[in-house]
């Protein structure tokens, strides 16, 4: 039971391209095509080919410094904010290369939201945190209703419905992170990128975030970077494994069904990493 996944190496992809996946335009939410990233002269990741299926949870795993965050940031042009960063290759989102000159990064980021490693609510009220993104993007509907829906989707409504006008900084870390998720989905993105969203949280809060991700994956494509193998195994549908070569440049080693990656990986280095034998 496999799904079509493009993998870096031609030989492997031939073997596993037995497709039973639905056809149509909605298959892939976002596709990286020969994408490389340089910070100044340093090549952080090279030639990533990765087609991320729509409405699934895709996990990115790999050793520290292999470029997971870098790849994630490429998907919504957050790398533009790092002046030394340079992206080559293509990232296709709904058939358009988001690195085209004529594409507006602001527009891209609205469509592809992001949740960061450390919860970073704005120093405003809970309500404002959710409302702000939609307001600047020109939302004209009922703001109260919208905020409630977003908070409900993020499974936070019951906990905060009585203190919407209080500062978001007064929430617990886990609540703050769910607020950040609510804030991200309020602007109605297609894809939500999450960079180690639970790494700053305790196990209970982590579980809640994981549940939430599963619920959200019905409507959104989720790409999540994680250092936690169990988390990747528990929550994701697909897993991409990145590793570094001797020049510390990151590569996509294997990208497949999560079950396959964790039970029968086709690459030796993947197996080493997952079983903890990684050098």
């Amino acid at each position: 039971m496999t799904v079509a996944i493009e993998r870096p190496s031609q030989a492997q992809s031939e073997a596993s391209r037995t497709s039973s996946s639905p056809s149509g335009t909605g298959r892939y939410a976002i596709e990286a095509d020969k994408m490389s990233v340089h910070y100044g002269n340093f090549c952080a990741v090279r030639d990533v080919d990765m087609k991320v299926p729509t409405n699934k949870i895709t996990a990115i795993i790999g050793p520290s410094g292999c470029g997971k965050s870098t790849v994630l940031r490429c998907f919504n042009r957050m790398n533009d904010l790092i002046s030394s960063a340079r992206v080559e290759g293509e990232v296709l989102f709904q058939g358009q290369n988001i690195y085209d000159d004529e594409v507006d990064p602001v527009e891209v980021r609205r469509r592809i939201g992001m949740v960061f490693q450390k919860p970073n609510p704005f120093p405003k009220t809970i309500f404002e945190n959710v409302a702000w993104g939609t307001r600047i993007n020109g939302f004209r509907g009922d703001m109260d209703e919208m905020v409630e829906k977003a908070l409900q989707s993020a499974a936070l409504w019951d906990e905060v419905k009585d203190k919407l006008q209080q500062s978001a900084l007064g929430l617990s870390g886990g609540q703050q992170q769910r607020l950040c998720i609510a804030r991200a989905i309020a602007v109605e993105p297609e894809i939500i990128l999450m960079d180690e969203p639970a790494s700053a949280l305790d196990p209970i809060a982590t579980l809640r975030i994981e549940d939430l991700m599963k619920e959200l994956s019905v409507k959104y494509t989720i790409i999540v970077v994680t250092h936690n193998m169990q988390q990747a195994a528990r929550t994701s549908d697909f897993t991409a494994f990145f590793s570094v070569d001797d020049k510390r440049t990151g590569n996509l080693i294997e990208f497949d069904d999560t079950e396959k990656i964790f039970t029968n990986p086709s690459q030796k280095s993947t197996e080493d990493y997952i079983t903890g034998r990684f050098g």
Partner: peptide, 25 residues
Amino acid sequence: MSRSAPLAQAAVSAETMRGPVAGGD
């Protein structure tokens, strides 16, 4: 554990459910 069910569902949702915040139609 079969993965086909969620996939099928995904195919549908790709058409209809993209966008609205919470279960909008």
